[in-house]
Computed example of a mutant assay.
Amino acid sequence: MTSFLDPVIAVVSAHPWLAYLTLFLAALLEAIPLAGALVPGSTIILALSALVPGGELKLWGVLAAAIAGALLGDGTAFWAGHRSQREILNAWPMSKYPGVMTQSETFFHRWGTLAVLFARFVPAIRAFVPVTAGALGMPPMLFFGVNIPAVLAWALAHVLPGVLAVSALHEYAGLPHHQHIGKHLWILAVFATAIITFGIWALRRRQARTGLRPGAGPT
């Protein structure tokens, strides 16, 4: 993996626009069935986020590219499932992964609405839950109401570790780095925690109000 990333990082370091495009495509492809199993999107995002402390890339640009790609990928997969319903679950490329599709459907039935949030952080089924949610009849407003906060939290969770680690390394080695990054990171870390906490609380409250169990899911 390192041999693959080294030339990528070398090229995008000199061309920021290419780095943002790479981040966007990595997040997009990782959210699409089949492509998500082949593209190491999370690794690419983590590696490129390490260029932020040195000033090669902007923190907000990295986050925006990752968020936009993930939202487009998840949204496309969901709408494909929503339009085709269950028959898409047995079509190519999903038919190539019957075990993963079964796992995705089981995960969705177990956690219901929360599956859309949790799946963002489970690489094995991340690319399959949105299409499954659409195919099983989850309302679009409900899906995007959960998916958007989930993507925001996912992007922060993937970008912040790389930025924090390299910022600490720069500090330790006395290398130049952006002094305002630390302040921004704390704000973003609190924001990410708040998104996840509020999302889980709101969904749990909705399930309690409607009498749904976590695994009931939509019908």
Rank of each mutant, 00 (worst) to 15 (best):
G182C: 02
R120I: 01
V146Y: 05
T132R: 01
G174A: 07
G174T: 08
S104P: 04
V166S: 11
G162T: 04
L136P: 00
V146T: 13
V116F: 01
A168E: 11
H158V: 02
A173G: 09
H109T: 14
L142T: 15
I148E: 10
P176Y: 08
A119K: 02
P98C: 10
Y172F: 14
T106Y: 12
L185C: 06
P149L: 12
H170N: 15
W154D: 00
R120A: 08
H109C: 13
H177C: 08
M94L: 15
L117S: 03
V122S: 03
G99A: 08
S104V: 06
A133G: 01
A168R: 08
V159P: 04
I125Y: 06
G145M: 11
S95A: 15
L188V: 04
H177P: 01
F143E: 04
L117I: 09
P139S: 10
E171D: 10
L169D: 13
L188E: 03
G112I: 13
K96E: 13
I181V: 14
I181W: 09
P130N: 01
M141N: 13
V116A: 05
F107R: 09
I181R: 04
A165Q: 06
F121E: 02
V146W: 05
M101I: 15
Q103C: 09
E171M: 10
H158F: 04
P123R: 02
L185A: 08
L169H: 14
R126T: 03
Y172R: 14
L152V: 12
L156K: 02
Q179L: 08
V159F: 06
A150F: 07
M138Q: 09
V116W: 01
V151Q: 03
E171Q: 13
P161F: 01
K183F: 12
L185H: 03
H109D: 13
I187A: 11
L188C: 07
W111D: 04
H170M: 12
H109R: 15
T102H: 10
A124M: 14
A173T: 15
R126Y: 00
A173P: 00
G137K: 03
P130S: 01
M94K: 07
S95P: 09
R126C: 00
A115Y: 04
I187K: 04
G99N: 08
K183G: 11
V166F: 11
A157H: 03
L175C: 05
F128C: 00
G134E: 01
R126A: 02
G112D: 06
A127R: 01
G145D: 09
A155H: 05
P139K: 12
R126W: 00
P130R: 03
T113N: 07
G182H: 07
Y97P: 00
L142C: 05
H178D: 14
L142V: 15
L114T: 11
A157M: 11
G162Q: 06
V131P: 03
H178Q: 15
E171S: 14
T106E: 14
M101W: 06
A150T: 08
G182I: 11
A115T: 06
R120Q: 09
P93W: 07
A173K: 14
G145C: 11
M101V: 15
A124I: 15
F143P: 00
Q103W: 14
